[in-house]
Amino acid sequence: MDKLNLRRRILRDRSELDERTQRASSAAIRETLLDQPWVQMAGLVACYWSIGTEPATHGLILALWKHGATVMLPVQRPDGELDWAVYDGPDSLAPGPYGVMEPVDVRRGVDAIRTAALVLVPALAVDRVTGVRLGRGGGFYDRALTRVGPNVPTVALLHEGELIEGVPAEPHDQHVRFAALPSGIVRLLQV
């Protein structure tokens, strides 16, 4: 299946998830992540403010922040890059130019993600064999992930059924090292 049709299929499947299932999935992902020592020890976490039917990150971000982690969230730039700014509680967010909530803190630059000890990214699907991540098609996260160090855990948050085989890949597509699903965290093999 090509990327466009796979995106359509996953977005359709997500739209059919009822609110209770979405809340339960998000809570399970959050609790599983927060139980991991490598998450607990991450002093600087790059995350994202979830939208729509993505596994919700709002509670995860708040929990990480309350437990002392510094959480950076992306700020979309018109040039297709992600800038980063620090989350400082619920009142530190405002709608960005694309309608996504963004921190109002000082921008840290596109290279700020290099300093993160943990990177949590959105995905529509991840290939269970190669770790190739399928995003929404803008390339924002593919560009950002090129800046992440080789030993930093990169984790895509997924609903059940979105860790699949055969995600189409192009040379610019980036891999993730882990997939977090309601059923648990999967370490991915990468080619």
Rank of each mutant, 00 (worst) to 15 (best):
L34F: 01
W49L: 10
A28N: 05
D18G: 03
G52Q: 09
L17A: 06
I51E: 01
T32H: 15
A24R: 06
D18C: 00
E54K: 13
E31N: 08
C47F: 03
I51M: 09
L17H: 02
S15F: 08
C47E: 10
L33H: 09
L33V: 08
G43Y: 06
A27L: 06
R20M: 02
E19P: 01
A24I: 00
P37H: 12
E19F: 00
E16S: 11
T32K: 15
S26D: 08
S50R: 13
W49P: 03
A46I: 05
R30D: 13
R23Y: 08
W49F: 12
L33Y: 07
D35W: 02
P37Q: 05
T21F: 12
Q36F: 09
Q36H: 03
S15K: 14
W49R: 11
A42D: 02
I51L: 12
A46V: 01
S26F: 08
V39H: 12
A46Q: 06
P37S: 05
G43I: 04
S25N: 14
C47L: 14
L44D: 02
G52M: 04
T32Y: 10
G52C: 08
D35C: 06
A28M: 03
C47Q: 02
A28D: 01
D35A: 14
T32D: 05
Y48P: 02
S25P: 06
S50A: 15
S26N: 13
A24L: 09
R20T: 05
D35S: 15
L44S: 01
L33Q: 10
A24G: 00
R23N: 10
D18M: 06
A46W: 00
V45S: 09
A28Q: 03
R23K: 14
C47Y: 02
T21Y: 12
